[in-house]
């Protein structure tokens, strides 16, 4: 039962925001020592484990080409396209952004969204402008709500889109962990396909809530 101390090291270490790499390493060493492995065997295990799970880090290899298209204006082009949504109501605009974010993340284009790159400069101001067109001057709570919803559309879209793309850390972590630990031969594409049902649910639930924002704003303005 003492080996559970190693699990506690991971949980507490991450919760205390210590350097994650050190937390993981210390937890691994602790697990080995408690199980009575010699120091040499522990180092061996780190070597074998790391060598056997190199597939997890392959997603790095697409960064040069992503960086290259960013250099040639990817984000600016995405901005131009998103600006075309400006005729919509705030709720519809955010639902449309959610869909765009999810679909592009599923295709590996995580770089076109993001809070600093898209929400703050484009999506939040556009949603506020759309609400002003409908409701006139906005109260502070109404503004806060629109901005919070804009941030949430980005998170939900990215989290529940990226897992459909195979070259993403979470999918490769699943296959790498399970293959090295339990000796399976999982294919990353199989795992990624199983992320689709949840992605659809996420779009339906969060999209519906984005659409409801228009009604909530009506209430906020009237009160």
């Amino acid at each position: 039962m003492w080996v559970l101390v190693a699990v506690a090291v991971v949980v507490v270490g991450f919760a205390l925001r210590l350097n994650s790499m050190l937390v993981v390493t210390v937890a691994g060493i602790a697990a080995g020592l408690i199980a009575g492995l010699s120091p040499v065997k522990i180092v061996d295990a780190f070597g074998t484990g790391f060598a056997g799970s190199r597939s997890v880090t392959v997603f790095i290899f697409v960064l040069p080409v992503i960086g290259l298209i960013e250099r040639y204006g990817l984000q600016h082009r995405a901005r131009t396209l998103i600006t075309r949504l400006s005729a919509l109501t705030p709720g519809r605009l955010l639902a449309a952004y959610l869909l765009i974010r999810q679909v592009t993340a599923a295709l590996g284009l995580l770089a076109i969204g993001g809070h600093a790159q898209a929400i703050r400069p484009i999506v939040a101001p556009m949603s506020e402008a759309a609400a002003e067109r409908r409701h006139g001057d906005l109260s502070r709570p109404a503004r806060e709500r629109i901005r919070s919803y804009a941030a949430s559309a980005d998170n939900v879209g990215a989290f529940f889109g990226e897992d459909i793309f195979v070259a993403v850390g979470s999918i490769l972590l699943i296959t790498g962990f399970v293959d090295t630990t339990y000796g399976l031969k999982l294919d990353a594409l199989d795992v990624a396909l199983w992320a689709i049902p949840t992605a659809v649910c996420a779009f339906v639930i969060h999209g519906w809530r984005m659409l409801r924002l228009d009604r909530r704003l009506d209430e906020l303005v009237r009160s």
Binding site: V10, S20, G176
Partner: peptide, 26 residues
């Protein structure tokens, strides 16, 4: 930064957990 290889380290941790019998204990 180093977060690029954190997933691979977590996968490595899995091997040590198994060797140490964490799965059996839990």
């Amino acid at each position: 930064g180093w977060a690029a290889i954190l997933p691979q380290f977590l996968a490595t941790l899995g091997l040590l957990f198994t060797a140490a019998g964490v799965g059996t204990a839990v």
